[in-house]
Design a protein around this nucleic acid. Structure first.
Lengths: 269, 269
DNA sequence: AAATATTGTTCCACATAATGGAACTTTGTA
DNA sequence: TACAAAGTTCCATTATGTGGAACAATATTT
């Protein structure tokens, strides 16, 4: 999970030096990011491939199950990916180690608990434990969100040293998801210095209005992996005071996870 | 989701006519199916590629985020797949339509409810609604299981006509997961004829000992998609009698889902 | 209904990217 | 330290992907 080796530009966009594979994955991304099934021509206008080429590429992706074609001939992301991903998830050691801690945190707070890892300039949600009281929140597992507007993202960033922090947030574009979203690197940096001071981060409707959370950072001993835990709830139920009250619990959970990692992943190497 | 076009052999293994992509996906599969992170040499011995070639293929997969390298230099499935898969899942129309029905079925039975689709000779679990009482069952979403030993699988098969049924189960290998697993095509066919008669399927510890379920088939109007719903629970708590009692509810849920599909997906085409 | 435009599919000479053997570097082990 | 095993790089050869154009199948318009 060590990103930012070379080949990753400041804006997070990668150089595609991977020949055929790069082009095909770009297509997968294109279809995955679309709002719905795409027709051949839609894809044609967005990818800048010639018709013949695109046609063959799509056929290959379909043949491998990475894309599917619906009855109207439109393309959508295939279920094969779900199967591959489920194994990735099930075998993820970090997730497995964290799970009981998340569960415990949920038992105490009775609100949704998330686990996410820092991946370039994004947070990828690895797990969640959710209560029955809530209307099932749109599932977050696997979802990638910007660092600057999520509790886990900001918490994870706060655990970086200044130089790495600078490279990570260089070239970030600050999209205003809500009225509370931070606007620029300056605001982010000052929030982060406060997060460092107190040891935990808040997200007060900065990503999704009506949703707030408190999060704490997790870092592996070697510093290669950065992650975070959070407790999230709807603003009408969760006040800044209750977030404040949960903060020590979240920090404690993060620390227990780090301890467990040291014990179970440390010995190797 | 219409499989068994040409290119799929009886044993379920595909011809790889997809050149470079095929080889790379085969590698992904290889790593995904392994029990844990694999070293270069492990992969080398399983794939029959020359060292240089394999090395570049792996590098490309890593660069695209489909694989990752841990701190010991071992390869494992990358998180990028999780992100792609989460979109696939979130945008899946069938899943979205079924969701409220699964929720309702869970509210009545208080046991775990699953939704799965038939994909070749396997069932892929698309969704689940699970109670808080159970120790969190190993997450099934995205998991692919054989048809012949799962309630949903057998239910879905029962909705096929005889000729298609025959081609689907031709060449199946019957692995005895538990003492109750069906042993051969004959046993499967006779179970299926009973399922057709009564309209729902049982899985009495045939896949995992201690776990049983009752399932009903779902088929799209055009017959292109086959799926199923099930209610699952641990054998110590769920008796054959309770499964029997739930059967009408499961069948009703399956029918409501089909009605909803007709209303919401039908009009097109 | 015929004409036209749009969309989707196939083909093949050509260019590009993958191949695989060998040389080389690094890491682990006796 | 010496040796073996694992991992990485290089480059001439060859397989594979490319993209333009011609073709086929649908929509859309007149």
């Amino acid at each position: 999970m060590d990103l930012n080796s070379e080949g990753v530009k400041a804006n997070g966009r990668r150089d595609r030096e991977t020949g055929t594979l790069g082009k095909l994955v770009a297509l997968l991304d294109l279809v995955a990011l679309a709002d719905g099934p795409m027709r051949f021509t839609d894809i044609l206008s967005l990818s800048d491939q010639p018709r013949g080429t695109l046609h063959r590429q799509l056929s290959h992706l379909v043949e491998e199950g990475l894309l599917e074609v619906d009855r109207d001939g439109r393309y959508l992301i295939g279920l094969r990916l779900l199967t591959l991903a489920s194994r990735s998830w099930a075998r993820n050691e970090f997730r497995a180690i964290a799970e009981p801690h998340l569960q415990r945190l949920h038992d105490v707070t009775c609100e949704t608990v998330h686990l996410g890892v820092l991946h370039g300039a994004e947070v990828i949600y690895l797990d969640k434990v959710e209560g029955r009281q809530s209307v099932r929140m749109y599932s977050q597992i696997g979802n990638a969100s910007p660092t600057y507007c999520t509790g886990i993202g900001k918490a994870a960033l706060s655990a970086l040293d200044d130089t790495e922090l600078a490279t990570r947030i260089a070239g970030l574009e600050f999209h205003p998801y809500t009225g509370q979203t931070l606007h620029n690197a300056g605001e982010l940096l000052s929030d982060i210095s406060e997060i460092r001071r107190r040891g935990y981060a808040f997200d007060l409707e900065e990503h999704e209005s009506g949703i707030c959370c408190v999060a704490a950072p997790i870092r592996s001993d070697d510093g290669h992996m950065l992650a975070g835990v959070s407790v999230t709830g709807p603003a009408y139920r969760v006040t800044p005071q209750s977030l404040q009250a949960w903060a020590p619990l979240v920090v404690a959970a993060a620390q227990s996870i780090m301890m467990d990692m040291r014990n179970r992943m440390g010995p190797k190497r």
